[in-house]
Amino acid sequence: MKNVKIALSSLLLGSLLLTTSCSSDDDSNPEQGIHHDEATLVEITVTDSNGVAKIYNINAEGEHDNKTSQEKEDGHDEIVLSPNSEYSVKVRLLNDEDPNDIEDVTTEVLEEKDEHFIVYSKEESLNLTIDRTDGAESTRADGNKIGFSTDWSTGAASGEGHVEFKLYHQPEGVNSAVTGNGNDFGSVAAGSETDIDIDIEIAIEEAL
């Protein structure tokens, strides 16, 4: 009989435990949060030799049902450059998840500047050279300029093409030399982690 009592009281206690535990409040909503880690926007400021600046925003989000990664989203403007001209190009990385409080991710990257490096690659058809002009704030300890500030010089008109912008985190084998027959501005070795990889559409043509 004693045992039955123990069994019954244990049953009771257990169900009590179960019911009290279930009365959590349903009304609280999970916090939305900001995904600080991600840059969501690449802001490219192109200033011509007359000091006229134009800002291009590139967000690289898009979806495709097929697997061809060549078909990237064309949701942003083409950067039109004049032939035989000089431009100063500055890049900022932003997180615009909260439009009222846009975060400048560049600051974070520069705080860890030795862990970052940008590589620009262009299509052969584009008559373009890119020179790194970073100041001390965006120059790595190994002397390589990260590539947030660059000078772009165009040659003859060459129609449309792409420039790949790649920001690497914890890169291996950083080298800012121009390689690939003058098409790759800087390089890293395998094992570098891609933080940003976007295509910038460029056209080098006479302004109408």
Partner: peptide, 15 residues
């Protein structure tokens, strides 16, 4: 299973 690709700012990813 992989069903497609998603383009993020980091490049393409299989979905």
């Amino acid at each position: 299973i992989p069903t497609g690709a998603d383009f993020t700012i980091r490049g393409a990813f299989p979905v």
